[in-house]
Structure formats: C-alpha cells, structure tokens
Design a protein around this nucleic acid. Structure first.
Length: 227
DNA sequence: TGCTGATCATGG
DNA sequence: CCATGATCAGCA
C-alpha cells in the first residue's frame, strides 16, 4: 500500500456502509482517528472539518473534495451531525455550494437535491467542553427524505430560485427557507464567485452554500430515534 | 478559485 | 441565546 492510498476501501453497497458505521458507534473520534492514522487536534478552531474527515476516512468515502457524493458509486452522502446533549444538533449542516448563476432545472435535478436524496447521518458528540478526541460516535442511520420533507425542501429551493431570478444574488439571504437556507461559504470575505444582479448584469459576490437548519436535523433525529 | 469537511464568533 | 455572517484546512 502506498502512503496516499486509502486505508479503508470503499464499501460495496449500502448494507456494508451501514454495518461499518454501526460498528463505530460508541467509539471515540480519537480512537477512530488513530486507526486511520489521523492526528487528533486539541481543539477544532483550526481543524473545523476534522470529525467529518475522520468518519469519511474510517468508512472508506471515495468522493474526496470533488463535487460528487462521498460514496460516489452508491450515490450516498455522509454527514456527521454534532450533538449538544442526546438529541440536539449544535450546528446547521452544510450541504453543498450554491451555483449563483443557476440553481438548476428542478429540485430533483439540482445538486443540493441529489445530495440530500440519500444520506448516511452519523451523530457525534459536539459539546465544545469535550475534547475532540474524546467525543463519541453515535448510532448512524441511512435516510432519504419523505414525500412531505421533499415537498418542503423543494418549496424552499424554488423560492430561492425565484428570488435569484427576480432580485439577483442579493435576493438570497440566510433568512429565507423553512428547512434549507443559503449562507456565505468561503475561505474568507474577499472570495468572489460569478453571479447576476437584479438587472441581469454579471457581478461577482461572496460564494454561498446550502445549509440545513437545525430545526430540520432535530426533526430527523426525532424521526430516527423517537422523542 | 472552488469544492470538500465544518465550526467560530459576533450582532440582534 | 442563537442565527447569520465569517472563517479555517486540505486538495484539485
């Protein structure tokens, strides 16, 4: 094995993926990281995506940082869900970048819609008082949106698209959306990406991404584990 | 530069 | 107190 080869091969199907994830439940992130040869940071200030990278590596995700699903051949997205307490999401959940020049033809065809079509949720302790390496992995579950969830997500997305068309990129504020929202997503405030203004002129703005509100992931947790 | 992984930190 | 807006790291 060359040093840059993944230590864990990609799971061949959803069952294997789910089985692997379930086997990690109860472990600390430090223990999982150790088995993958990943260093454990003292805090997350300069390692914000660490928990997600640990789980990706441990489960054999093959998507890397490309714009494809984490488990490309399965069409499954992996999301760690930091919890404060047993069932409370600590943060909104980033889904993907928003193309501000065109959200897409339809919810189903959109990148955000396809990412959310199938997700392996992995709860992880997210209490900042717990050092990253001591945080425990929870019970994972595979999820696809119900018809009702899809209807609301689609409606949020269509409202974003409408705003983008009528008002340009400035019309997309983080206040809109029941379960989805559009927020800045960039390395820093000077980052620029292509967009349009209300008159349809080409402009450049701070990049945005789609996020799931905590109200939504809280509902998913209740659905998966009961209240 | 843009996409992935997210959490940080301040204003309302 | 918590959502919005800002930011951090790695890779292509």
């Amino acid at each position: 094995m060359r040093y840059h080869d993944p230590m864990v091969t990609a799971p061949r199907d959803e069952e294997e993926l789910h089985h692997r994830a379930t086997a990690l439940a109860g472990s600390t992130l430090g223990a999982v990281a150790g088995r993958c040869g990943l260093a454990v940071p003292t805090d997350l200030r300069r390692s914000k995506g660490w928990a997600g990278r640990v789980m990706e590596t441990a489960l054999g995700a093959d998507g890397g940082s490309r714009a494809v699903h984490d488990f490309a051949h399965l069409g499954v997205e992996l999301k760690t869900l930091p919890l404060q307490g047993p069932t409370e999401p600590r943060e909104t959940t980033y889904v993907c970048t928003a193309d501000l020049t065109s959200l897409g033809e339809s919810w189903e065809a959109s990148w955000v819609g396809r990412k959310l079509a199938r997700v392996l949720w992995v709860p992880v302790e997210g209490d900042p008082a717990i050092p990253p390496g001591e945080r425990r992995v929870g019970t994972p579950w595979l999820w696809s949106p119900t018809a009702e969830q899809t209807a609301t997500l689609r409606s949020d997305w269509e409202a974003f698209r409408e705003r983008l068309t009528l008002e340009g990129a400035a019309g997309l504020t983080a206040h809109a959306g029941t379960w989805l929202q559009v927020r800045p997503k960039a390395a820093h405030g000077r980052a620029r990406t292509a967009a349009f203004d209300a008159e349809g002129r080409r402009i450049t703005v701070n990049p945005r991404g789609f996020y799931l509100r905590t109200a939504f992931t809280r509902a998913l947790l209740a659905e998966a584990f009961g209240e």
